[in-house]
């Protein structure tokens, strides 16, 4: 595992001067990925928070080659880059080894770009796909996606008097991608940089398509103070809402087991998007969320053997 001293060598691959909100986890994710990947890396972005804040013409925060095509194309456009890489390398027109990495939010991954990602994984392109998952369409002003958790208030799943927030549980992306037979899929968290950077290294060293879904807390959308981003992330893992695990060639491995029982309620309480659940008439939803978290955790433990 590389030390933070070593990781700091690549500090300038994604520069300051980007316009992300104060306390946004997105740039932390990008920085942690690039600190491992290094300068010989091409980034493919989908339309979304990180694309918008990092490349407002004539400025770019990227110190590596970068391409953005559209919202749903992080994987499909990178498929083309990868195809070009393969053929131009054969022809001797491109030298050296390059890392090809897609960065996309949960909207661009779980929803509108889902087909493109599925196709790219099935075809077996050699790239890493990183979903910085802030659990809603934050760029357009906090609308629900299929990654938004049960009960959360968003502007399209508002906490109303009849319907108190999102009705559905979130999709499990890692399971879906693992079912494609991808050689490496993992779930990560920016608060555990050691685990995440190890996973990035592993993914880049793996031939074929690899996917990492990393929870990226959003102060604005989740409604917590900007200094709590890492703490909110950490607690998502501690309460087992967001387990850290990886699936390598179909083999599941739990990477971190919380030492003590933390009810999901503690994590929900930190975030204003769940504030409406803490009333007598909505308490049952917290119970439901806890049951959902427990069910998924048990199922994960079974798979991890």
């Amino acid at each position: 595992m590389p030390s933070l001293k070593e990781l700091s060598k690549n500090a300038d691959l994604f520069t300051g001067g980007h316009r992300a909100c104060s306390g946004c986890a997105g740039p932390i994710v990008i920085k942690q990925v690039l600190s491992v990947a290094g300068p010989q890396t091409i980034a493919s972005l989908s339309t979304g928070c990180m694309e918008v804040v990092s490349t407002i013409y004539p400025y770019t925060a990227w110190n590596i080659p970068y391409i953005h095509v559209a919202f749903e194309t992080a994987a499909s456009a990178l498929s083309g880059v990868e195809a070009a890489y393969q053929v131009l390398r054969r022809k001797g027109k491109v030298k050296g080894k390059w890392n090809l990495i897609a960065f996309s939010g949960d909207g661009g991954t779980y929803d509108i770009g889902f087909q493109g990602l599925s196709g790219a994984v099935e075809r077996g392109h050699d790239f890493l796909y990183v979903c910085y998952n802030n659990e809603a369409y934050m760029n357009t002003g906090i609308q629900r996606s299929s990654a938004t958790p049960r009960g959360a208030h968003t502007t399209t799943s508002p906490a109303g008097t009849v319907i108190p927030g999102k009705k559905q549980f979130h999709k499990n992306l890692v399971e879906v991608i693992a079912a494609h037979g991808a050689p490496y899929v993992a779930q990560a968290i920016p608060s555990n940089w050691a685990d995440f950077t190890r996973k990035v290294r592993k993914a880049l060293d793996t031939e074929g398509p690899t996917v990492i879904d990393i929870l990226a807390p959003c102060p604005l959308g989740w409604r917590y103070p900007s200094n709590k981003t890492i703490e909110v992330a950490r607690l998502a893992v501690e309460c087992k809402f967001w387990p850290l695990y990886e699936v390598e060639n179909g083999k599941y491995k739990l990477n971190y087991r919380p030492r003590k029982e933390v009810p999901v309620e503690e994590w929900l309480r930190l975030q204003g998007r769940f504030a409406h659940l803490f009333t007598p008439e909505n308490e049952h939803i917290i119970k439901e969320i806890q049951e959902g978290v427990d069910r998924r955790w048990e199922s994960l433990l079974e798979k991890c053997g």
Binding site: S3, L4, K5, E6, L7, S8, A11, D12, F14, T15, G16, H18, A20, S22, G23, C24, A25, G26, P27, I28, K31, Q32, S35, P190, S191, W193, T229, I230
Partner: peptide, 25 residues
Amino acid sequence: CLFCFIYCPDSSIKVNEEGKMTGID
């Protein structure tokens, strides 16, 4: 320890060649 460096969203933690934090940008 450089935790501030790895968690800073705005690349504002200055780290020198020796891996020492030298200030905030």
